[in-house]
Every structure is written in C-alpha cells, then in structure tokens.
C-alpha cells in the first residue's frame, strides 16, 4: 500500500513536469467557463447541466491523453524495468498509476467548483443534484481513465494507446445517443446499460442508485484488471 501511494505521488508530481496536464487543465477550465456563463446568461438557469453533458465528451480526448504515457512510455524508455524489479507487485503498480492520474482528475474537478459556486451566488442552485453530479463525473472519469491505462499497459506506443482508449471511451459515450437507431429488446437494453450517459444522467438528477455506482466501479475494476494482466504478460512472453 505504501508503495502504491509512492508510485501515485510520483506519477501525480510528474504530470506537472510535462505539458499534457497543463494543456488538459486549461482547455477543460476555459471551455467550462464559457459554457457555464453562456448558459447562465442566455437561459437564466443555474445548473451544472453543461458539465454533465460536456465532461464525458472532453474525457473522450482527455482521459487517453492523460493515461497514454502511464505505462507505454515507461516501457519504451525502459524505466518499467527498474519499477518492476523493486519489491512491488504488478497490481500495486497499476493501482498506483491509476491513483496518480485519478488525483489529477480530482484536481481538475475541484478547479471547476468555482463555476457552480459563483452561479449559486447569483441564482438558485440546487445543492443536492450538484453534489451527486460531481460524484457521477468523478466516477465517469475514473472509468475512462482506467480504460486509458489499460491500453497503455498493452502497448509501448503512446499513440496507439491514445487512439484505442479514445475509441472505447467514445463508444461508451455514443451508445445512449444512438439508442433510437438500435433494435429494441436485448440489444437496446444492453446498449443502454453500457452507455455512460444513462448512468451519469441519473446521478445528475440527484439520484444515487447503487446500480449506477456498480456500473462505474465495475468498468473501472474490469479495465484495471485487464491492465494488470497486460503488465503481467511480459513475464511469460
């Protein structure tokens, strides 16, 4: 556990040594700033609706961008060899990397808090749904970052990791948007269940359903598990 945290802390700190973290943070904050105020002044509505709609879209790009290097780059430069010959388990490495990037995402979410707070001071913001929406966004981010990390563990090429991760995230985002075009019945149900949107929307309405939580956690867990397998496979190849 100590090792996991040491890895996470190093990873978190190293983000601020490179450009990716700054670019992602700035881009997301600027875009949200614009959306928030436009929405507030145009429609006279104070809500975090814009974040719930647009955060997953931004994560389609941001999550793979932040995670693509986590393991792929270490494998390319060889630092993975030092990391994995220290007395740490592969699972601790995956978890540490994940917590490192999740920490960065948490910082990003915290930095967006001034938007709803300032809106709340001008209008009438319902606190409950805002908090559950934030929880939903956090879980969405966790799932997408785990997916990105998984692909980073499969390859030594960051670009490959970026596009594969981005594609899966895009797919999960897209599913509930194309529901009307899918045959109803089992296919439609499965698609609806798999879609990020259908679960995030619930939470944005202020409903915290165990099923939604389970959905996000199982995607995260599954992706981390596969990432762990990908890392472990080096031993047998």
């Amino acid at each position: 556990m100590k090792n996991t945290l040491a890895i996470a802390r190093r990873q978190f700190a190293s983000y601020f040594n490179g450009p990716v973290a700054y670019i992602v943070l700035c881009a997301v904050l600027v875009i949200f700033g614009f959306l928030f105020w436009r929405f507030f002044f145009l429609y006279q509505v104070a809500s975090v609706r814009q974040m719930v709609v647009w955060m997953p879209v931004m994560l389609i790009v941001a999550a793979p961008a932040l995670t693509m290097g986590l393991l792929a780059e270490e494998k390319r430069t060889g630092t993975i060899e030092l990391l994995l010959t220290m007395p740490v388990r592969d699972a601790e490495v995956i978890l540490g990397k994940f917590l490192g990037v999740l920490g960065l995402y948490a910082v990003l979410l915290v930095l967006t808090i001034p938007y709803p707070v300032s809106v709340a001071s001008l209008g009438n913001l319902d606190n409950g749904p805002v908090m559950t929406a934030y929880l939903g966004l956090f879980l969405t981010g966790a799932a997408m970052l785990a997916i990105g990390l998984m692909f980073s563990s499969f390859t030594t090429n960051q670009i490959v990791a970026f596009f594969s991760g981005g594609f899966i995230c895009f797919f999960l985002w897209l599913l509930d948007k194309i529901l009307p075009f899918l045959p109803s019945g089992v296919v439609g149900d499965v698609a609806e269940y798999l879609a990020v949107g259908s679960h995030l929307e619930d939470m944005a309405r202020g409903v915290v359903d165990t099923r939604d939580i389970v959905y996000f956690l199982s995607i995260t867990g599954f992706a981390l598990m596969l990432g762990f397998r990908g890392l472990e496979s080096r031993r047998w190849r």
Binding site: R10, G18, P87
Partner: peptide, 18 residues
C-alpha cells in the same frame, strides 16, 4: 529476490524529469 537485489538495467533508464 527483489528486496535482495540492486539492479541497474541496460542503458540506465531513469525518470529523467526528476
């Protein structure tokens, strides 16, 4: 095993940003 070993891999991969 790992605890008993100090290892320097080929071409010295280090976290160069640190």
């Amino acid at each position: 095993v790992r605890a008993a070993i100090g290892y320097l891999p080929e071409s010295t991969p280090l976290y160069t940003e640190m």
